[in-house]
Structure formats: structure tokens, C-alpha cells
Design a protein around this nucleic acid. Structure first.
Lengths: 204, 204
DNA sequence: GAAACAATCATCAAAAAAGATGATTTTATC
DNA sequence: GATAAAATCATCTTTTTTGATGATTGTTTC
């Protein structure tokens, strides 16, 4: 029984690399590739591979989004995240969206085959580096609310509390409250570090 | 006359992809690969390829650095930058360090072959997207002084003017002057956007 | 050696942000 | 339907930043 493999990645060289690595494997049935989320979804309407190798950075939408949708529409299709970077937040998002594991693009053929085989057994698989990243104490993502995020974005755009209050149709004291809870949640003491941290975390 | 090609990239899948793309080309002599700068330099002591495909993100040092060194030590060896991103600053750095062109990793086989052939003719070659990025008006780097940069960094760390003045052994009004000239040079009107822009430009 | 710039300081005023406390009304969540 | 959390507003004070103007002392650069 061969495992049907499909790959979504916007880098032709990576697709070609994986195809080349897997082409003579008897256990692998190469089903094709897509270079964006849309054509991946189009393909899935016709065929269901066993495992999709999915780049987390796609041109038309994020890999995490696509992962979520694929898993909802086709629960039998497993997803292996694929990326250049091992950022724990991205990995966590992928896992939260139903991925079965995470591979870095410097993976060897052996690693690739092992990942596929583990995943097919229902297990999770992580590249060594990805596993390390997951173990690292995570830069805590302050849990901010929808409104706080709006305010944060406007602060980053350089608006003052007065301007923000106008834009969001709320009073200035309210803006101030949000602003202060942002400072608190980010554990910073002024706007400068707030913006810095927000950017670092990827919220801006 | 075959063209000797060598590749430096820390992603095994990309190496394999390029190898697979080029392996049946009669004009190409695949000389091997390295996954980091050190082993690339070690290889060059023994053999000189005609063209090196060089990833700009290497684990041990930056591709731009390596490019510079290779071009100085072996002027006959041409370098083609290779990357996932088309950031014009990186492209410009590579070119300034003697690269002959810049390819994105979503390049097709045809593009790859054309790039190699153009470069061997002594021309420069850029991926379409890279060329577009180069044409874009570059975000102007405000020219800030040594002192201003110090102040900027301390602001980003969250220090107030009073704290900065203490740390740099200057008076508060002076810190203020620097701060204001920073706002002016960055063409922003408050700290929030100052930090944002500084990070975006890569100054922080 | 003149001109341009960097770095320093001063003073005064206005605007904005940050800190402290408390309270009401929606909206989720169990 | 109770509880918790989010979003809203209020008042008041202190600290910090931003703005406006001007001036002195070095250091480069032409």
C-alpha cells in the first residue's frame, strides 16, 4: 500500500527537490504539487492524498489557514508543515490547526521518509530543530482582546489617544484604559517598548 | 565546454531540487554542494567552479559576507545569489559584494539555466521579482549620527529621557534634542512610529 | 580659515501618556 | 442563569514627551 503524497510550496526548487528525493521510493505515490493554496484546494476536490507537505508561507494565504481548511474539509488528509524557519509560534499554530508535524527544509531524505511514515501511523513528527524550538520557554504571547489589538495597531500608526477615540467612536478614557492594559499585558512600561515587543512577536 | 556549478545552501531539499533540475543538462557540470560557508571555502581551496549558487542565509555567516570573500579570493568564480525573499537591500548588498545576479527559489529550470548562461557571458541576471524589487524606490534610510543612534537604542529599550541622560552622562535637554532630531529625520511624529520605522529599516 | 555639522546645553509651554481607582454595561462561557 | 471577561466611561494626578527658539563648542570637510 503506497502512501499518496502531495506538496504545496511556492518554491519550485523545493518541490523538485522533494520529488527527486521521493521518486524511487516504493512506498511513496507522488500525486503532484501546487504552488499556492487555491490550486491545492482545487486538487483536493478531485483527489485525496494521504499526506500533504505544506509550506507555511504561501503566496495567496498563510499555510496555517490552509491547513485548518484542509483538515476541516478532508479530515482523512494529514498535513505536515514545511518551512525554512523553526519559529515556535508558527509551529504551534500549525499544530493547533490540525497539522501532524513539522519539518524544516534542511531535512534529509531519511528524515522526510520517517516523518511520512510516523504521521501515517497516527503519530506526530517534528524535525529535531523544531522540537527544540517547541521545548524552549516560549516568549509569552500576551492574550490581547480584539479591541486592544485595534488600539495597538492605531498606536503603531502614530495616532494619539484623542485620534484613536475619534476613529473607534469611543471616549478618550476608554482608549487610555485599553492602552494601559496593553502595557500591562506586554509587561512593558512605555509605548516604545510596547511597539518593539509587538513587532517582535509578530502582532504588527 | 561544460560550466562547473557549485551550490551553497543550508536546505538540503533545495540542493536536491537544483541537482535534480540540472543533472541531465549537457552544459552543466555538477561539482557538488556545501551546506555552510566554511565547507564552501574549504571546497574552493581544491576546486574552482565557474558559478556558485549561493543562498544568502547561511547558518555560520551571511551569504553577503561569503560572497565578498569568495570574490576576493577567487575572482574567476562567479556568484549567483539565491534566496526566498526579494528584499532590495539584500540584493543590493550581494551585488555590491561582487555577485553577478540574484535568483529566487521559485525559479524554474529554464530561468536557472538562463541565469547561468547569462552570468557566464559576463552579464548580470535577476529574477523578474528581484528586478522589480530593485526598481522600487527604496525606503530612504535617514542618516543618523552616532549619538542619535545610541539614544534611539535606549529609547527602544524603554528608557525615559531622564534615564538616558544619566546613562550617557549628558543633560536631559540634550537627550531631548537628539530625540527630536530623530523624529524629524525619520519623518514621524511620535515614539511609536519612530520605533516601528527604525525596526522596519533594520536599525534596531 | 570658512562653512557645515555634531554635540552639547538652556528655558518655557503645551500636549500626551501613564498611574491609580472605581464603576457600568455587554458579551461569552459554563 | 450565574460567572467571568471585555468594553465602556469617569475623575484626578504625575510623569514624560513634544514643540519652539536660541546658543556654545568642537570636529570635519572643502
Amino acid at each position: 500500500m503506497k502512501a499518496g503524497i502531495f506538496i504545496v510550496d511556492d518554491h519550485y526548487m523545493v518541490i523538485e527537490g522533494i520529488r527527486s528525493l521521493l521518486q524511487n521510493e516504493k512506498t511513496i505515490d507522488w500525486m503532484g504539487h501546487a504552488t499556492n493554496a487555491a490550486s491545492c484546494l482545487a486538487f483536493l476536490k478531485q483527489h485525496q492524498p494521504d499526506v500533504i507537505l505544506m509550506d507555511v508561507n504561501l503566496p495567496d494565504r498563510s499555510g496555517t489557514d490552509l491547513c485548518k481548511e484542509v483538515r476541516q474539509l478532508y479530515p482523512s488528509v494529514l498535513v505536515l508543515g514545511l518551512s525554512t524557519f523553526n519559529q515556535q509560534t508558527i509551529i504551534q499554530n500549525m499544530m493547533a490547526n490540525g497539522a501532524s508535524g513539522y519539518l524544516l527544509k534542511n531535512a534529509t531524505k531519511e528524515e522526510l521518509l520517517e516523518a511520512i511514515s510516523e504521521v501515517l501511523k497516527g503519530k506526530n513528527y517534528f524535525s529535531f530543530e523544531a522540537a527544540v524550538a517547541l521545548r524552549e520557554p516560549q516568549e509569552k504571547h500576551p492574550l490581547i482582546t480584539r479591541r486592544e489589538k485595534e488600539v495597538l495597531q492605531l498606536i503603531a500608526e502614530g495616532l494619539t489617544n484623542a485620534e484613536i477615540s475619534e476613529k473607534l467612536f469611543i471616549s478618550m478614557p476608554t482608549v487610555n484604559t485599553h492602552r494601559k492594559s496593553l502595557l500591562e499585558k506586554f509587561e512593558v512600561k512605555n509605548t516604545a517598548t510596547l511597539i518593539g515587543k509587538a513587532i517582535k512577536i509578530g502582532l504588527l
